[in-house]
Amino acid sequence: MKTTPPEFARDAHHWLILHGRYVCKARVPDCPRCAIRDLCEYRRKTTPQGSPRRKPGPSVS
């Protein structure tokens, strides 16, 4: 709350929840689409190009 401007304080928690639900997902984060990736402190989540790491899954036939 110390760094959140007063005009955003009412809605900031909703925006963070939605960001986690639709952009910064636990299994497959969408880092290239992230508006706040420059503030991200979890660098292991992204490759140097900024795209998420994915393990190859089983092929579907």
Rank of each mutant, 00 (worst) to 15 (best):
residue 1 M to L: 09
residue 1 M to H: 09
residue 1 M to N: 13
residue 1 M to T: 11
residue 2 K to P: 07
residue 3 T to F: 09
residue 4 T to F: 03
residue 5 P to N: 05
residue 6 P to I: 02
residue 6 P to S: 13
residue 7 E to V: 12
residue 7 E to A: 11
residue 7 E to C: 04
residue 7 E to P: 09
residue 8 F to Y: 15
residue 8 F to E: 10
residue 8 F to P: 00
residue 8 F to K: 13
residue 9 A to Y: 04
residue 9 A to V: 05
residue 9 A to M: 09
residue 11 D to W: 03
residue 11 D to V: 14
residue 11 D to R: 06
residue 11 D to P: 00
residue 12 A to P: 00
residue 12 A to D: 10
residue 12 A to N: 08
residue 13 H to P: 02
residue 15 W to T: 15
residue 15 W to F: 14
residue 16 L to T: 09
residue 16 L to F: 05
residue 17 I to D: 08
residue 17 I to C: 03
residue 17 I to K: 14
residue 17 I to Y: 08
residue 18 L to W: 05
residue 19 H to V: 01
residue 20 G to I: 00
residue 20 G to W: 03
residue 21 R to G: 06
residue 21 R to I: 07
residue 22 Y to G: 05
residue 22 Y to N: 13
residue 23 V to P: 00
residue 23 V to M: 08
residue 23 V to D: 04
residue 23 V to L: 13
residue 23 V to Y: 00
residue 24 C to S: 06
residue 25 K to W: 00
residue 25 K to G: 03
residue 25 K to A: 07
residue 25 K to T: 15
residue 25 K to M: 15
residue 25 K to D: 01
residue 26 A to T: 08
residue 26 A to H: 07
residue 26 A to W: 08
residue 27 R to C: 04
residue 27 R to F: 06
residue 27 R to G: 08
residue 28 V to G: 02
residue 29 P to M: 02
residue 29 P to W: 01
residue 30 D to Y: 11
residue 30 D to Q: 14
residue 30 D to V: 12
residue 31 C to G: 02
residue 31 C to Y: 00
residue 32 P to L: 03
residue 32 P to S: 04
residue 33 R to K: 15
residue 34 C to V: 04
residue 34 C to W: 01
residue 34 C to S: 08
residue 34 C to H: 02
residue 35 A to W: 08
residue 35 A to G: 12
residue 35 A to D: 12
residue 36 I to F: 06
residue 36 I to A: 08
residue 36 I to L: 11
residue 37 R to E: 10
residue 37 R to T: 12
residue 37 R to Y: 11
residue 39 L to D: 14
residue 39 L to F: 14
residue 41 E to M: 09
residue 41 E to L: 12
residue 41 E to D: 06
residue 41 E to C: 02
residue 42 Y to L: 11
residue 42 Y to N: 13
residue 42 Y to M: 06
residue 42 Y to K: 04
residue 43 R to P: 11
residue 43 R to N: 10
residue 44 R to L: 09
residue 44 R to C: 05
residue 44 R to H: 10
residue 44 R to K: 10
residue 44 R to E: 15
residue 45 K to G: 09
residue 45 K to W: 02
residue 45 K to T: 14
residue 45 K to Y: 02
residue 46 T to P: 01
residue 46 T to Q: 12
residue 46 T to V: 07
residue 46 T to L: 14
residue 47 T to W: 02
residue 47 T to P: 00
residue 47 T to H: 12
residue 47 T to Y: 07
residue 48 P to E: 03
residue 48 P to C: 00
residue 48 P to D: 03
residue 51 S to R: 13
residue 52 P to R: 11
residue 52 P to I: 02
residue 53 R to T: 07
residue 53 R to H: 07
residue 53 R to E: 06
residue 53 R to V: 07
residue 53 R to M: 07
residue 54 R to G: 02
residue 54 R to T: 09
residue 55 K to V: 13
residue 55 K to I: 11
residue 55 K to Q: 10
residue 56 P to E: 13
residue 56 P to H: 07
residue 57 G to M: 06
residue 57 G to F: 01
residue 57 G to R: 10
residue 58 P to T: 05
residue 58 P to I: 02
residue 59 S to N: 10
residue 59 S to A: 13
residue 59 S to E: 12
residue 59 S to R: 14
residue 59 S to L: 14
residue 59 S to H: 09
residue 59 S to C: 08
residue 60 V to N: 06
residue 60 V to L: 11
residue 60 V to P: 00
residue 60 V to G: 03
residue 60 V to M: 10
residue 61 S to M: 08
residue 61 S to I: 10
residue 61 S to A: 14
